[in-house]
Design a protein around this nucleic acid. Structure first.
Lengths: 236, 236
DNA sequence: AAGCGCTTACTTGTATGCTAGTATGGTAGT
DNA sequence: ACTACCATACTAGCATACAAGTAAGCGCTT
């Protein structure tokens, strides 16, 4: 009950909101709340409570729960309850490994196939990231960060790769949120993006791969320290 | 209505069935029916019809529909209907590419880290595949085929990679089913498995990678021909 | 004949009621 | 004090009812 105060309202116009259905809005609202750790890992979360809090029926909440369970953010134990999953270092490391495998392959393919138009799109995204960082617009940067990775997949002709990556990112996003206070500075991340794009533009798959690996390794540095600092949030 | 005759009964004890819930059984039943092309791509499929046919309510059918839509096997158009998705050559090729990226990374990691126990497990699976092929037990071979890829992921310490691969495989499974009549002979596939395992056992990541790439390329040969032979099943 | 508008029969989305399984706390019995 | 049992208050899974949107057929009007 107490914890649910984190859910004051349904996020009617969510940034990433093409969702017009109630269950879609509930899903976005809950995922944000979980990723931003407004729900403590390990705590229970019942369909009925959330439905009451959001002023909707159990049905759309249930569908959101199911999707969040597939993303590894909730654990549904039938007839027992649903719980916010604790963060697992092993699972985060695994998700990172798989994500790296995919994004490295994408970067190499982009280096081979990307058209000039796509490269310009990516340029624009990096420029936007510089502006957002300058303005201290952290939320805006996060959106443009996602857009860059998605844009790279598009440039490689792997439009639907993003669906897979999105699922993997969910595991990692809570860690990223935890690391916000002392995260890698945005300008460093932006330069890493630029390095990836340089490798792609130079049609040099090895350079693109190296830059991507470097970029996706950031989380490895912070993970052990964060797990030490917040043991209650972690499973292992 | 006609098409639904493909759903005589709920598959009460499904081979991969740890599912005890109705919605889980409906999901397995429907996925099998779709993959085995007992539902023609492009045709509509309504929650109510399936529910009636299976003797359950709309609720579990709906949940199965949602998951099948996430897997790319159904397309839910709100207030309009749900349709069996046609096979997209582009999407199949994309899923193959991503799967290759993941499984190559897994094979390389397995070559570095797999323990003797795990290698023995994989040996046993290949031996089982030889028996199944000898007995003409095609269904049994398919199960052991999946088990081999999953087992390799386990050997690499990527237990949860299988969740991702499962989603990607769905896209490819209908093509595999289409290719059954003149598919690559089982003994060839088994030798490819053995080649992968050889590379892993020799701690030679490059050899494991090459063998894996070879193995996952099989579908590329059949795809164009199948799309030509069954144009009504394909989108592009 | 062509086009507009209504009726009707669908569809999925949402809400609500019901069932069965689980955890908990108290109580009676030893 | 401890144990066994039971009443109770949860949980999620499933069934049913309702709402809102869509598409197609049909007849009317023009």
């Amino acid at each position: 009950m107490d914890m649910l105060s984190a859910l004051a309202t349904l996020d009617e116009d969510h940034p990433r909101n093409r969702r017009v259905t109630v269950s879609g809005r509930v899903l976005d609202t809950l995922r944000d709340a979980i990723i931003q750790l407004r729900f403590s890992p390990g705590n229970p979360l019942s369909e009925a409570d959330v439905a009451r809090q959001l002023g909707v029926s159990r049905q759309p909440v249930r569908e959101a729960f199911i999707k969040l369970a597939e993303a590894g953010l909730l654990e549904i134990r039938p007839q027992r309850g649903t719980f916010v999953r604790k963060i697992s270092r092993r699972e985060v490391a695994n998700a990172r490994f798989i994500r790296e495998a995919i994004e490295v392959a994408i970067a190499r393919k982009a280096a081979a196939e990307a058209t000039g138009d796509r490269l310009s799109d990516l340029d624009a995204l990096i420029e936007g990231q510089r502006r957002a960082a300058g303005d201290g617009d952290h939320a805006g940067f996060l959106r443009l960060d996602e857009a860059f990775h998605q844009g790279l997949a598009d440039a490689a002709g792997c439009e639907d790769a993003w669906r897979v990556l999105e699922g993997l990112k969910a595991q990692m996003d809570r860690v990223r949120y935890l690391s916000l206070p002392d995260a890698t500075p945005l300008h460093v991340l932006i330069e890493q993006h630029a390095a990836i794009l340089d490798g792609v533009r130079a049609r040099d798959p090895d350079r693109a791969e190296a830059a991507m690996k470097r970029h996706l390794s950031e989380i490895l540095f912070s993970l052990p320290r964060l797990a030490e600092a917040h043991p209650a949030f972690f499973l292992d």
